[in-house]
């Protein structure tokens, strides 16, 4: 197979590389761009560990052929602000951390699109991100505290 030329914007910066026509976006991000924060949990769109924003919308990067992002914008966990990760850390959202990048990206998206919260509950919104460690309470309270910083449910973190 001959490689394709691919240009897109990754976390705000232009990238240009050669990829196989059957390459998955997930692999291009991890192995060609060095953005290993994005994880593979299943490779078939079930677990959400590979969630990234494509033109601002959350997608499972394991299901996206890399050539489809040509000329578009991809944002990964590496581009997420501390206003998201800090509160998630205080409620214990990450245990083993394998699901965490997907949850962080999803949380960022919810924070930027509060209008969608009228349509479903947080438990419904987060149900595409499998987590085997937490039982989800700390995930849900973490996301809630990012969306509404006044409501810090769960553990109050201090570190002195």
């Amino acid at each position: 197979m001959t490689d394709l030329d691919l240009s897109f914007t990754l976390n705000g910066k232009p990238v240009r590389l050669h990829v196989r026509p059957d390459a998955r976006l997930l692999d291009v991000l991890r192995y060609d761009c060095g953005c290993t924060g994005t994880k593979e949990g299943c490779g078939e769109g079930e677990c959400g560990a590979c969630t990234v924003l494509l033109d601002g919308l959350p997608v499972n990067s394991c299901l996206v052929p890399a050539f489809q992002v040509a000329g578009r914008s991809v944002e990964t966990v590496e581009a997420v602000a501390p206003e998201v990760t800090g509160p998630l850390n205080r409620t214990g959202t990450a245990q083993c951390g394998a699901c965490s990048p997907g949850i962080v990206v999803m949380t960022r998206w919810l924070r930027e699109h509060p209008e969608v919260l009228q349509d479903a509950t947080l438990r419904q919104f987060m149900s595409g991100n499998l987590c085997r460690c937490t039982g989800y309470d700390s995930v849900i309270s973490g996301v809630a505290s990012v969306l509404d910083p006044k409501e810090t449910a769960g553990g109050e973190g201090t570190s002195a």
Binding site: R30, G34, C35, T36, G37, T38, K39, E40, T76, V77, E78, V80, T85, G86, L88, N89, R90, G92, T93, A94, Q95, C96, G97, A98, S100, P101, V104, G155, E156, G157, T158, S159, A160
Partner: peptide, 28 residues
């Protein structure tokens, strides 16, 4: 303090930022 303190986990932020290195993240 120490025991009984509700301290955020030491590896938490690295995991949330995608910076923790799992085996398939190692570049060799």
């Amino acid at each position: 303090m120490g025991i009984g303190e509700d301290r955020p986990r030491v590896d938490g932020l690295d995991k949330l930022r995608g910076a923790a290195a799992y085996v398939d993240d190692l570049r060799v």
